[in-house]
Design a protein around this nucleic acid. Structure first.
Ligand SMILES: [Mn+2]
Ligand SMILES: [Mn+2]
Ligand SMILES: [Mn+2]
Ligand SMILES: [Mn+2]
Lengths: 227, 227
DNA sequence: CAATTGACTTTGGCAAAGCAAAGTTAATTA
DNA sequence: TAATTAACTTTGCTTTGCCAAAGTCAATTG
């Protein structure tokens, strides 16, 4: 079986892969994502490539094979299911579960994972709104836009938080913008580079302002019309 | 911090230590307990001894220092709390949790462990009846006798199962002799080398027979008088 | 008391994972 | 086009754990 090191590399290759599918992930990006020196990444990638889990083109970069992608998605599934368990069942704060899951993801057996999945009723998203791959290795697509480019005034729900640093997540917590929260973008001020939000709560109107750079870190979904 | 290898060695040194406190644990016993060749155990123990976690006397054996014992007890606490969580909250069978906990015990953070402890209401015993060391590293003593040497006819409760192989635990499950089960030893037949048990259930009298060698694997406690 | 034996230790070697620093490429700049 | 530079690869070395096989010690046994 793949060592925990290899699992970590594969997961990071998946998460850091460039949007354009034909592109390679550069070794520089990979080495910083994994947290090793570039030389270490090169030799590790060579090894993983011998195992046919990635394609490696010197001076171009690295890219997952179908087998490697399946493995990466399994690790990601473990990671995200564990995060949700830690939040929902064990009551950890969502800002601290990532570190924890980073270790646990390599150690939880298939049997235990199946039980976790059952207890959580086969959830589709983790506490940060990231999609949980299915046991078969399929990632469900959600179409979202950021608070920067979603339509003004429309009722929307927070779907996903892109900056998952502990500090940012604590800020998100404070202003109640967790995944699921219903809000509208009241206005955008291009001079001040700010976005004004309104919470949709019964009888109450709360306002929150944030800069464009922060607004970009929230993905939202348009609420379905209830007429 | 101690590597997972060192944690495993310390835990095994603790669990395999001879009953007589003045005795050393031999390297042979340790190496089979840890599952490595004798040479490997020797060199590892040398290293652990350099870290002042054990005393090592060549050709005599090994023995925990107070610091090493504290560390061993912390690993044991993690192991046993995790086992109980897996059974009580995640619904795994008690015959499969040991393997699982063997890995998880090295990876669960203090914060997570504290939450587990809370959720389980600070339990004193794991699913097999083994005592869970306190966070301060204290093991509560329970005075038990085996089904071989407990008094005949007295109402007792199963306290602890000494053979924790998956097969044996499944047998224990089948005859309902889990920790907490109330029974009386009806008789012992020294010719046949068997023990006859009676379950104490409302209105029902169930009988179970087992050999001396199996009876030895059950620790029981006398029930307090209810007069 | 010597010989044998079993338990233990030592030695030498290997694989995984990592770093530092030197050496290459290839893209950019002048 | 030539020089510079940033990104990448190679090389050499380290640490941690492990095994196999050879060597040593001490307890029994004859
Ligand atoms: Mn990880
Ligand atoms: Mn997440
Ligand atoms: Mn373990
Ligand atoms: Mn146990």
């Amino acid at each position: 079986m793949a060592s925990r090191t290899i699992e970590n590399y594969l997961k990071q290759i998946y998460l850091s892969r460039p949007a354009d599918e034909t592109q390679w992930l550069t070794m520089g990006k990979l080495s910083t994502a994994v947290g090793v020196t570039p030389g270490t990444a090169t030799s590790m990638v060579r090894a993983i490539s011998d195992a046919h889990l990635v394609e490696y083109e010197p001076r171009a970069g690295v890219r997952l094979t179908p087998a490697g992608e399946q493995l990466a998605l399994h690790v990601l599934r473990r990671h995200r299911l564990i995060e949700l368990l830690l939040v929902q069942v064990l009551g950890l704060d969502w800002s601290e579960v990532h570190e924890e899951a980073e270790e646990l993801e390599h150690v939880v057996s298939d049997r235990l994972l199946a039980r976790i999945d059952e207890i959580l009723h086969h959830p589709a998203f983790d506490p940060h709104g990231d999609p949980i791959p299915t046991a078969g290795g399929v990632v469900r697509r959600q179409d979202c836009c950021t608070l920067l480019d979603c339509p003004l005034g429309e009722p929307t729900s927070i779907a996903r938080i892109l900056d998952q640093s502990a500090e940012f997540l604590q800020y998100v917590n404070q202003c109640g913008l967790l995944p699921g929260a219903e809000i509208r973008v009241a206005s955008r001020n291009h001079q001040a580079q700010t976005v004004e939000l309104m919470a949709i709560k019964p009888g109450e109107t709360q306002v929150e302002a944030m800069s464009f750079s922060v607004a970009e870190k929230f993905l939202v979904q348009l609420n379905e019309r209830k007429k």
